[in-house]
Computed example of a mutant assay.
Amino acid sequence: MPADHILTYALAMRGGVEAALGRMFQGWLDRGRRVTLVLGEESGQFQAGVPMGVETVTLGHQSYAGLCTTLPAMIGRMRPDIIFCPGNHYTSMAAWSRLRLAGACPPIVAKMSNAVDRGDHHPVLAWGQRQWLARHRLFLDALVAMTPATARAAQDATGLSVAVIPNPPAALPDLALDRPRPPGRRILGVGRLEPQKRWDRLITAMTHLPPDIGLTILGEGSLRPALTAQIAALGLTGRVTLPGHSADAPAAMAAAQVVALASDYEGVPGVLREALAVGTPVVATDSSPAVREIVRDPALGTVVAREDLAGLVAALRHWLDPVAPRPDPVPQPGQDSPDRYLALFDSIVTARHNRQTLASGNVRFGARAVAVARRLALRPAL
């Protein structure tokens, strides 16, 4: 029994979770499914990636509490066949919808978009996070992770059976392998200017690198003022630039000597896959189990401990050496991910339909049995 109507939601189309969600839509539409996207606001750099066929419902605000409280009523009115929660940031909305709608709530499938163990959590917060994850089995019908290692961690934390489905690949430019590169040596970072990404760590590393090395960070976020102040305080104004979002990030990756990601925590960082897909080596912190799955060979890049500044500097020096060989491009996985998600959705919807049919049949059988028993009880004794 197919999941003909899929409902999903987001505050706005900004960030890696939302970018991956947008890349899923066309595959679902192409297979005849109805897709409803509930948005806080139609904004964000990935809004243009939402295809025309997606039914978008906009609330007009980016209030987490507002979307959380509104969602159950919208689900009850639209009656989708399945709900897709696109990432960890949104699972409390799924839990609230299940609580409010109870048995009338459609099945909910969620994606594990961040690491189970976050590198920025105090031990008390880490304990609370583990308790929250252990309760996911109370409101989710299925959980998806993007790599085997993240699936194992998610299964241990939640007790759910976890499917492994990678994100659909990002579109990459048609780049020649002998593409020219700009003069000088430049490090590229791509991601939101938010605490999770720890761009301050990468900026600090620049003070230990030769003055001919530059750093460009493509992205936008709340930490722009703080990072700008750090750059000025360290005397790096001429070497570190924050140009904001770029629609041509893959081309920038292809032109960079190395792509760096210094995060405290990640799920499965797509920026690493995209950089390797255009043949650019990467340097990344061990921000999730998936990082070593992606950077699986020393020829592809270097993984360092989160707080190892010396190791980060040494890795950057290595890949910025003009004689360091660039890796061969690594194809991105996930070409069939929309189909794999639909197969999972369909199996869950079918299983629920079968259970309901069986329960309904049992109720009817029970009612007939009671009626027969009553007739026998009322029949006069011979």
Results as ranks from 00 to 15, higher is better:
P211V: 10
D117Y: 14
L316D: 02
N114M: 11
V38H: 00
A145W: 04
L234E: 14
L175E: 13
D339F: 07
G60C: 09
A163Y: 08
I217V: 14
A149M: 06
T56N: 03
R31T: 13
R181Y: 02
D120E: 15
L242R: 03
G60A: 00
G76I: 00
V240G: 05
T237F: 03
A95S: 11
P333R: 08
E18V: 05
L193D: 04
L276R: 04
W127D: 14
L215K: 01
E18D: 10
A262T: 12
T91E: 10
T158N: 02
G214S: 15
R364G: 13
I6E: 07
S222G: 14
R31A: 15
L242W: 06
P51K: 05
E41K: 10
D264M: 00
G334F: 01
A367S: 12
Y9T: 07
V259C: 02
R340F: 11
R100C: 15
R77E: 06
V190Y: 01
P380D: 06
R239C: 03
D321N: 14
L39C: 02
L344Q: 09
A94W: 06
A232I: 01
V303P: 07
E274N: 07
A154N: 06
G66V: 08
R23Q: 12
D81V: 05
A252V: 11
G128Q: 15
G235L: 11
A20P: 05
W28T: 04
D346P: 04
V278C: 12
A314W: 11
I6Y: 01
D174M: 09
A102S: 12
R34C: 08
A255C: 12
P168K: 00
D212S: 13
R375K: 10
L202Q: 07
A205R: 00
R239W: 06
G270L: 05
R368W: 15
F46H: 15
G159N: 02
M1F: 09
A12Q: 08
S337N: 05
D336P: 12
G40W: 00
A134G: 13
S43N: 13
V372E: 12
E220V: 04
A142Q: 06
V164E: 11
G191P: 04
